[in-house]
């Protein structure tokens, strides 16, 4: 994948992610709608590839206003990933050379790798993840299970032990997918399954779209390394 293709695909997927997030806010209070209607318009322009550098800047300014409005991220990790991609696109659009653009896209790809690897490391050093207890707690009393019935998964320790180690191993081994394009495709399919599972179990749907938007950067980086 060429640098230009990777950048354009990132723009398209980010526009979809921002549209998805913004549409969810249309049913909320009037003051929030005022924040998100302009974002919908800007995201459509980004999707169409019109005035992209300035649209990215406007989206970034607006993202900062939204960040301030909610006194921090509204949806934790997915907001952080969306903002990171948007910030990188802003920088890329104003970089004087393709080499510098590549560095910024490479930084984004590195952060995507880290988003899995660092999460895996944190789980690996926590004994409660080794035993499946952390997942048990997550289902038993955390605010995340998306339906009451899912809390009963806490009563299946063997399933949770297996799921814990699958998560840890997937996240720790994810950087190895850069070794080969086929491995990367398999890794990204596994990552997509991981995010869809999280969307089903914990209602974290925004993560699916935000992370997909960062995958073209990984494809590009893999092509550069090997």
């Amino acid at each position: 994948m060429s640098l230009i293709e990777a950048i354009r695909l990132t723009e398209i997927f980010l526009a979809i992610a921002l549209l998805q997030q913004s549409l969810e806010h249309l049913r909320t209070a009037q003051d929030e709608r005022k924040l998100f209607i302009p974002r919908i318009i800007l995201s459509i322009l980004l999707l169409l590839g019109l005035w992209t550098p300035w649209i990215c800047v406007l989206l970034l300014i607006q993202a900062l206003i939204i960040l301030k409005h909610f006194d921090g991220p509204y949806n934790g990790g997915s907001d952080r990933m969306s903002l990171l991609i948007l910030s990188c696109l802003c920088l890329i659009n104003f970089m004087p050379s393709s080499q510098l653009q590549g560095y910024v896209l490479g930084y984004l790809a590195l952060q995507v790798l880290l988003s899995y690897f660092a999460a895996g490391c944190c789980k690996f050093i926590n004994r409660e993840w080794w035993s499946g207890r952390a997942l048990q707690d997550l289902f038993r009393f955390s605010a995340y299970p998306a339906s009451q019935d899912l809390r009963s998964l806490a009563d299946h320790p063997k399933v949770l032990l297996f799921a814990s180690w699958i998560s840890i191993l997937f996240e720790l081994l994810f950087p190895l997918t850069l070794l080969n394009q086929n491995l990367l495709i398999i890794g990204l399919l596994a990552a997509l399954t991981f995010h869809l599972t999280n969307a089903y179990l914990f209602g974290l749907n925004r993560f699916v779209w935000a992370w997909i938007a960062a995958y073209p950067a990984l494809f590009w980086l893999q092509g550069q390394l090997i």
Binding site: M81, Y116, K123, A134, D137, L138, S142
Partner: peptide, 11 residues
């Protein structure tokens, strides 16, 4: 710009 990416490390 410098995210921590620590998800569910401690419940």
């Amino acid at each position: 710009f410098i995210p921590s990416w620590q998800f569910f490390n401690k419940i």
